[in-house]
Write a protein that binds this DNA or RNA. Sequence first.
DNA 1: CATGAATGAGACTTCATTCAT
DNA 2: GATGAATGAAGTCTCATTCAT
Lengths: 183, 183, 183, 183
Amino acid sequence: MRNERKNGVRQAIVDTASRLFYKQGYVNTGINQIIAESGVVKSTLYTAFRTKEDILMEYLVQSGAATDAALKLAAEKGKDDKGKVLAVFDYLIDLVQEKEFYGCNFLNLISEIPTDAERVIKQIQKQKNGVRKLFASLLEPMGKEELADEIYILFEGALIANKVHNKVWPVDAAKKIAAKLIS
Amino acid sequence: MRNERKNGVRQAIVDTASRLFYKQGYVNTGINQIIAESGVVKSTLYTAFRTKEDILMEYLVQSGAATDAALKLAAEKGKDDKGKVLAVFDYLIDLVQEKEFYGCNFLNLISEIPTDAERVIKQIQKQKNGVRKLFASLLEPMGKEELADEIYILFEGALIANKVHNKVWPVDAAKKIAAKLIS
Amino acid sequence: MRNERKNGVRQAIVDTASRLFYKQGYVNTGINQIIAESGVVKSTLYTAFRTKEDILMEYLVQSGAATDAALKLAAEKGKDDKGKVLAVFDYLIDLVQEKEFYGCNFLNLISEIPTDAERVIKQIQKQKNGVRKLFASLLEPMGKEELADEIYILFEGALIANKVHNKVWPVDAAKKIAAKLIS
Amino acid sequence: MRNERKNGVRQAIVDTASRLFYKQGYVNTGINQIIAESGVVKSTLYTAFRTKEDILMEYLVQSGAATDAALKLAAEKGKDDKGKVLAVFDYLIDLVQEKEFYGCNFLNLISEIPTDAERVIKQIQKQKNGVRKLFASLLEPMGKEELADEIYILFEGALIANKVHNKVWPVDAAKKIAAKLIS
DNA sequence: CATGAATGAGACTTCATTCAT
DNA sequence: GATGAATGAAGTCTCATTCAT
């Protein structure tokens, strides 16, 4: 019971913060906005999380897990080995056209966090290494494991170029390259 | 001479701001730090620039021109048509290993600027479209102009993945892909 | 007791601000002066009030209530119906001769507030409508309710002319007219 | 020639400042806005006027003269002695309904000027004494000179109550009282 | 343990004025 | 004498965090 309440507060904070961090950015989102929109009192927030950065970490972990799952699921939709890799890009094509898509959570953060926030960088790297591993695992059956990082570069390039231009073509282009690489 | 004196303050502000914006990010750099490190008093800064965002715009324009020139110069070092394209990636390989390299100016900004800063986004898009055009012009002699955006995705992927992992391999991987594409 | 402690800061701010707003004007009084003279630090002030205008509103409400009470009390000192109306002007005659009298709170504000401060204007109108109603209620027993607004004009004329000339005669003149009107 | 240019600048400043002081108030109007809207360079403004308050003084003198003339002219439209007095109120009735009417220039200033601006207060008093004298001169032929200040109170009451409520009725009420007083 | 109140530091911007040419 | 550049002081408001109950 107690724990449920406690976790309820924690999760309410994370949910609100996640939405705001993602939409507005971490630095542009203030604690005051988080408490205003989550309905949690400020001092309660600070008993649930020691610092704003702690909330960020929780956001990274949770959205990281969701992202992992989504990518894995997307890959599984591919009909054959090659198709599984390309299915990830198909997923991106849909994703970037969603109404509330504002780019990749993790890439969005990488430039905006304070220089000394090492654990945040570490977490983002960990997340992205998961993607690299995913591609490696998808390429392995084809015996093309060594292409993993190249496909990964396409993945990142698609996402960041989409963020810059706010168009779908970067993802299309990335998919096209991927298809050539693993043909 | 005259101009140096006349624009001394303006340029001193831009120089300092550029360094700080690049190293720490735009939001993490306050006007107070800019005046402290440039030696310009606050009110003088605000006669030179109407807002902090105006300083950012000048930074974008100036560093954009420098970047354009550097990329063009880098490309010219390539021995043949294909070599010119790859020379851009060679340039990146050197660049990302420089001591004071903190990623691409423009990509660094794209996620941290306030949602309503449309002119900033426009300027970044303009800058990046310049890169796309550069690749198009390099590919044209080979009759492979249609690969321009694909190469561009590699360019961005290399930069952002380097930012994330702080390693050279993403640029190497991007170059490798580029080589395959235009082989 | 509790309440005193609880609202101590809020009221300290309002008290100091009221004094300064009244003596120097709203625009001529800065937040910095309010915090300096109230002993409340800036951030605390801004947890108690969202904006400077919010402090102004509280000042209007509080001084408005006090003014209402004072006028009602003054009127009650009149011996008969006619006397009650004139007693209000007698009150003004005393008031304007007080050492710390700087004119009518509300009239002082009406010209200096920013053009977009609609709620401030509304509050002042509400306050002044209270005075009109007071005169109406005092005149009703005499069956001269229709004179309320005329008496009110005298009230305002007395106050503003006193402010301009810093002399008592405007109030005397207004009282004299009032006497004629209701004779 | 020189003088014309010099006076041209002076007058351009006064014209712009007058408009802004009247519409927004003195404190709410900054030097920067004056130079922006008058097209006069800041340093030139400060050779034409030593301080912002000097501009205000010139504004008071010029608009004061215009007001004097307008009131005199209005009075002359009255058909008989009594009519001349009431004609002043008829003028006000029209005036307050004009699109760009924001209250009486002089009353608007009286509460907003810094406490130490004695010469400004003096000038406003002088202006208002002119109105009192006008009423005295209009009442003299009727042998009712002693009513001058009472009529004057009505004049001020009408103006300030109109400013507060933004309605015509205060002027109507004032006129009605005036009619009774001099009947 | 939950919380209302408080905080020091700093955010960006504008003020009226003066100085050096 | 006109002016572009510079200025110190002050403007309102927000930051992430902590303390006393």
